[in-house]
Amino acid sequence: MTGAMRGRPGRGRAIAGAFLLVLLFLLAFAGPLVSPWGWDDIDFTAFLSPPSARHWFGTTQSGRDVFALTLRGMQKSLIIGLSVAVLSTGLAAVVGTVAGYFGGWADRALMWGVDLLLVLPSFLVMAVLSPALGGGWQALVALLAAFLWMVTARMVRGMTVSLREREWVLAARFLGVGATRTIVRHVLPHLASLLLVDAAVNVSVAILAESGLSYFGFGVRPPDTSLGTVIAESRGAATVFPWLFGFAAGLLVLIVLAVNLLADGLRDVLDPQLAASGPSAEAEAEVTADGARAGSGAGSGEPAVEGSAG
């Protein structure tokens, strides 16, 4: 109630993030159309040349145009980030709600699987498997998604467990509404904002993970390129030939920043009470109860709870 009156504090951030992201998308996908060089062209007359009218971002040791390479890398990073986020958040929603709603055996088995995946050194597994799966970016997407959903799933499960005991869910159950329908109609809509925010966060995590893997040569591999590989190529020379490093690194930071801003703004806009949540919703639930109550009390001038519970 109070959040609405204050004019939604996260709105500015969400809009700024979204705007920045749209610009970056435009740059990544429309930029190559105006670039005189293709990403795989080689200019034999210019090796390691600094930014100029001919090569806007300069060239690499092998004479490739850094502008074209960087945009190509951006495209890859953006596509990978988005696909991973959709896949992993979807998986997290399914596993989390099923485990949380049904409880018992399904819960224990699924959460044990989550624990196991969390213990596995994910970077190592991805680094080992990604080349073995052929090194294509689709394989990379699958791998990243497979290792990104667990924390969200835990969070979704925690919230589902508390939603399951909420009276409107009980009411649906006691009306005779089936389990699947109850999850879809009464549980998922209340997780929507969480999932949306989490998907956005996962975009940035996936982009960072992808570039990290590619930086070590375990992710996107030459001749294909991503922001990570462009930055990796500048290794050791970054301080001497800053254009090799600066443009790719700057754009990478901008993408992640834009996504983070969007995610965090969304979090505040969609649910003021969720404004402060981190990776563990279970730990959160205990504390937020106080804050939320204090908030609603301030709005109406009275505490929200009157009368004692049975």
Partner: peptide, 11 residues
């Protein structure tokens, strides 16, 4: 920051 915000208004 998030955790602290939660206790700011705590009883």
């Amino acid at each position: 920051r998030g955790l602290m915000l939660d206790v700011l208004g705590a009883d």
